[in-house]
Amino acid sequence: MEVRTIKVFTTVDNINLHTQVVDMSMTYGQQFGPTYLDGADVTKIKPHNSHEGKTFYVLPNDDTLRVEAFEYYHTTDPSFLGRYMSALNHTKKWKYPQVNGLTSIKWADNNCYLATALLTLQQIELKFNPPALQDAYYRARAGEAANFCALILAYCNKTVGELGDVRETMSYLFQHANLDSCKRVLNVVCKTCGQQQTTLKGVEAVMYMGTLSYEQFKKGVQIPCTCGKQATKYLVQQESPFVMMSAPPAQYELKHGTFTCASEYTGNYQCGHYKHITSKETLYCIDGALLTKSSEYKGPITDVFYKENSYTTTIK
């Protein structure tokens, strides 16, 4: 009895394709271990004539594949690729409408935090270190965002349907971005203890939790000093293409032309909904596939993004 075979390709990165001759009487799992086709788990399936010449994702289970996976995804987590594939199996079914010149995501599976993050990423200057993220990001900007969303979920250790947080998501993504040249110098002034300067680099240099107003941050924000008295913390120097200011959701007025974009969060910790506000020729609110415009805006804002380049204080 002759062994019926077909020729397929296996890959971990969709760049390096490895030619395989597979036995049609055995499952993919018996031949390769966990195997995925377009995100779908085909591990328990036997090869079919229609699979001839198709590319299958496999887990990096030998040295060659491990090197290829690390170079593309910059992670050695053995569960990463499987999590990416199972997320992709959902995100490829989502709709990605162009809204006001940006790629958004039609609401499904509690994905409003991903839509808000995706919209924000198209408006701030950011370059990702893992080629996987950078490639998928370019495709997302062009309207094909399924891979990018699935990668975000995998890097953030999230599953489809789980509630997510924009600030946490951005923080994970910033860790995989090139923020080497970003720098922030802060000064804390206390009447009792004097003053202390701190220099922050990388992710810490672009994120701040405690106030939404970048102007206020430049002037000074009140913080408790270690001595128990009130101290003032203010920005001395900022070198970065953008800054992200966050605070627990509270009524906040966004003035046209003073910011790049913002995240609105309605609801409580267990259950809520994100919308995205962007400042173009007027203010726009993007909620999944829905767009509304207004000249002014007041609502429960939790993150505001500002364009920056270089700032030095005039406070002496």
Rank of each mutant, 00 (worst) to 15 (best):
K183R: 11
N309F: 15
P249M: 02
N187A: 12
L151F: 05
L235C: 06
K218C: 06
L17G: 07
T282F: 10
E239L: 11
P224A: 13
R83T: 06
K93S: 13
K127T: 14
M244E: 01
A262G: 02
L212D: 01
K229I: 12
K218V: 07
A140M: 14
Y252G: 00
I301M: 04
S171T: 15
Y155S: 02
V185K: 07
P241H: 07
V304L: 01
S171F: 09
Q98A: 07
G194A: 04
Q216N: 09
Y269P: 15
L114P: 01
H51S: 07
Y311Q: 08
Y155P: 01
K218G: 01
Y155F: 05
L235K: 00
E2R: 12
W94F: 03
E144T: 08
A142R: 11
C182P: 02
A250V: 11
D109V: 04
D41S: 11
K219G: 10
D13P: 05
L186Y: 12
V203I: 14
K127V: 09
Q238W: 01
Y155R: 02
L283Y: 02
Q123I: 04
Q197H: 07
F305G: 01
L59Y: 15
T313E: 13
T19K: 09
T27Y: 13
G299L: 01
I6R: 08
L163F: 10
Y113R: 03
L119V: 05
E168I: 13
L283N: 02
D23Y: 13
D180K: 12
L17D: 11
K54A: 15
L17M: 11
D135S: 12
M170E: 02
V188W: 07
K92N: 12
S104Y: 04
G220Q: 03
Q98K: 15
P34R: 10
S246L: 00
A117G: 05
V99W: 15
Q123A: 06
H273G: 01
T302E: 00
S171M: 15
A145P: 13
F305T: 01
V166E: 01
V236K: 07
P78C: 10
N61D: 08
H74L: 13
A154D: 01
D63V: 09
N16Y: 09
T292P: 00
T10K: 14
D13M: 05
N100R: 08
T192V: 09
G228Y: 02
K7W: 10
Q195S: 14
I315N: 15
N187R: 13
E308H: 06
L151M: 09
E239C: 13
S279N: 12
T312F: 14
C193R: 03
F70L: 15
G39H: 13
N14C: 14
P241T: 11
I124H: 02
K54S: 11
V189H: 14
T27R: 14
E281T: 05
D77I: 05
A205Q: 00
T232R: 11
L283S: 00
G220A: 06
K44F: 11
W107M: 02
V166D: 02
F56R: 04
L200R: 08
C149T: 13
Y252W: 11
T312W: 08
T292W: 07
T10C: 13
A132C: 09
S294A: 13
R141F: 09
G257A: 08
A145V: 05
Q216F: 05
P300G: 05
N14Q: 15
Q238L: 01
C190I: 03
A262E: 00
H256C: 13
L200G: 02
I277N: 01
K106S: 10
S104G: 07
H273Y: 00
A289L: 06
S295Q: 11
K183Y: 08
Y138G: 14
G39L: 08
Y214K: 01
I301E: 00
I6H: 07
T91V: 12
I223H: 10
T211E: 11
T313K: 08
M26D: 15
M26W: 13
K255W: 06
P224H: 15
M26P: 06
I6Q: 12
E144S: 13
L173Y: 02
H74N: 07
K298S: 12
L290W: 14
C285N: 05
L102E: 03
T76R: 14
C182F: 05
K191N: 13
D13Y: 04
H51Y: 06
I152F: 03
R141K: 11
Q195C: 12
A140S: 08
C227F: 00
